[in-house]
Design a protein around this nucleic acid. Structure first.
Lengths: 134, 134
DNA sequence: TGTTTCGTACGAATTGATTCGTACCTTAGT
DNA sequence: ACTAAGGTACGAATCAATTCGTACGAAACA
């Protein structure tokens, strides 16, 4: 039923897909080999063909595009980092915190995983961005 | 391979499971009927037996417990709201923002979906919680 | 020119979540 | 006692993501 790579809504990357996108966003257009090595180095053991398969599927979905001019295809992200993460954040906010950014932040602040430094950073950030509002 | 309901790590609710948990957290122990009606009213069309099935599975996973003394089983959440959401937030933060709460917040601030009121609320909140730090 | 290495394509198997039909039991009402 | 209504249990079907084996082509190199 799937046609081409361009008739879709915003597209929700899965966890695995997001892992791959992160690498591409960070390092720019890359080969499957590069992405796979990275995954294995930083994250978890995964077969080359598995990574390849996912990247091919992502291409089908229109999340990635590839340059096939060379034998080693070079993949680049089509989804833009900021908007994609924004979408993910929206959805997460909606499903988990009923859309309340305040509740999310409270949870964030109460989280032991969030370091004190990070909190200070956040506060400083808020002041810097919009000091008069406070 | 699955044994009982208690040999597991923290447990990651899926989207559907989270929907159900939210209802139970909000309204307290409930029957399948109640949960299903709520889902259909507030969210989406779903068959009674589908909801039942998921809640049974969640019980198997140890996410829910049920009182079977009456014919109408009453389910209650085993997963605690705060810690569960904390876990989900941690994971989301990790996979999407590479663990940086600051980056997440920046995205939140830049998000058009986040209302101005909400932002003001957030700022006020930060001040209230830890005014001296700012 | 073999032959090894590295790449892509393709398809099957697995896994997990989800959905829902069907069977059957219990209770209330007539 | 019979029937209707409303429960639960169970198993099959579906669907998507994921994983990976196998086949095969191109390039590097001995």
């Amino acid at each position: 039923m799937k046609e081409d790579a361009k008739n879709n809504a915003p597209a929700e990357p899965t966890r695995s897909e997001l892992e791959i996108l992160q690498i591409l966003w960070q390092h720019g257009p890359s080969t499957v080999r590069f992405v796979n090595d990275h995954l294995n180095g930083e994250k978890r053991a995964v077969q080359y063909t598995s990574t390849l398969k996912i990247m091919q599927i992502m291409t089908d979905k229109g999340m990635l595009a590839r340059d096939e001019s060379s034998m080693k295809h070079v993949y680049r992200p089509v989804l833009e980092e900021k908007s994609t993460k924004g979408l993910l954040l929206d959805r997460f906010l909606e499903t988990t915190f009923n859309g309340s950014a305040t509740t999310l932040l409270l949870q964030l602040l109460g989280n032991k995983k969030t370091s004190k430094n990070e909190l200070d950073e956040i506060k400083a950030l808020l002041n810097k961005i919009d000091p008069d509002k406070l």
